[in-house]
């Protein structure tokens, strides 16, 4: 991450623990990453891998207690979001950092019109008058490709289809020209033809507006088409980080490799038998003291069971948290 401009967002050593009645859950464990201006950073992982909790934690959307969010720092716009006051965070959320969530029906308020909901951040964060906000809201709906925008401002969420609702969510997230857009599984609830529309829209919006995006998904196909750089999460940790092409060409963590082999494809060769990742994802009752993938890993050896690997650099801008060295075909040569 040495090249280019200073990161817009820099997360160092973020950890989130939930205290529940049935014990602690270590949902996010020492996660560090940075986001460069204008790039799209993809975060892939399965359910429970900690991708959403990481995002919610870094902008103070996790209720604490029961959660305990700690870490070295989350640097954004000259502030440390971990120590920022509530009113400082409120001025950032929805304004300088926009959000799009998975299910647009539950994140839109059913009793207010779409126009009202797009105008709300404009009036709160940017101090616009009603007519100014309405004009901007209409322009935003046009920007995200909703036809007949002027009339549709008066419609309620249930009058929109799933894909259109997600466009509305994107319009709200973009309302105050955010520096960072966080999209959490924004196309997961959509059908594949509608997903293609939203991905296409995202390409256009990035070209037009140039904001940095964090795109959370479990779908490797979506990542391949949209991301510049990728973080792979497993068991609340980042297990691999690389440019998208490096990741798909030379995955260096056994989990990433297994994931790429297990998904069937619509194009090209068809495998007679699917590759399987045996076993279950880990239950995160304690901070990791060994590699969290070791129990399911075909390459694991004794060290993986007694020590949690750090993220080792395996190439330029490419790191993997694994003691096995695929280039050497054996254990990694580290202290």
């Amino acid at each position: 991450m040495a090249d280019g401009a200073a990161p817009v967002l820099n997360v160092r050593d973020l950890t989130t623990v939930f205290k529940t009645r049935s014990g602690a859950v270590h949902a996010v464990n020492s996660v560090s990453f940075s986001l460069k201006p204008g790039e799209l950073l993809g975060i892939v992982g399965e359910s429970g891998s900690g991708k959403s909790v990481t995002m919610m934690s870094l902008i103070g959307l996790i209720p604490a207690p029961p959660a305990i969010v700690s870490g070295e720092a989350v640097e954004f716009g000259g502030l440390d979001l971990l120590t920022a006051r509530d009113d400082e965070l409120r001025r950032i959320r929805g304004a300088r950092i926009g959000f799009v969530f998975q299910d647009p029906m539950t994140s839109l308020n059913p009793v207010f019109t779409i126009g009202y909901q797009i105008m709300e951040p404009l009036r709160k964060h940017m101090g616009m008058t009603k007519p100014e906000a309405r004009a901007r809201a209409q322009a935003l709906l046009e920007l995200v490709g909703i036809p007949d925008a002027e009339r549709r401002l008066k419609d309620y969420p249930h009058q929109f289809s799933g894909g259109m609702r997600q466009r509305v969510m994107i319009a709200i997230a973009l309302a105050c020209d955010p520096e960072v857009l966080i999209a959490d599984e924004p196309t997961t609830a959509l059908d594949v033809t509608i997903q293609a529309q939203i991905l296409e829209l995202m390409h256009e919006l990035r070209a037009k507006l140039g904001m940095a995006v964090i795109w959370i998904t479990h779908d490797l196909g979506v990542i391949a088409g949209i991301a510049d750089r990728v973080l792979v999460m497993y068991g609340g940790q980042i297990v691999e980080h690389a440019d998208v092409r490096d990741l798909f060409k030379q995955p260096r963590h056994p989990y990433t490799r297994a994931l790429l082999q297990t998904v069937p494809r619509v194009r090209g060769e068809r495998a007679e038998r699917l590759e399987v990742i045996e076993g279950q994802p880990p239950i995160l009752h304690a901070a990791p003291s060994s590699c969290s993938f070791a129990a399911r890993c075909p390459f694991s050896f004794e060290r993986c069971l007694r020590e949690n690997p750090a993220r080792f650099e395996v190439g330029p801008g490419h790191d993997a948290a694994c003691f096995y060295d695929f280039d050497a075909g054996g254990p990694r040569d580290v202290g």
């Binding site: 033809t193 529309q197 490797l220 196909g221 391949a224 088409g225």
Partner: peptide, 18 residues
């Protein structure tokens, strides 16, 4: 419309966007 877990193929797909 189905995304392909391969950036090189992704670049070449000619999508019919409905």
């Amino acid at each position: 419309a189905v995304p392909e877990p391969d950036p090189w193929i992704e670049d070449k797909i000619e999508r019919v966007i409905l």
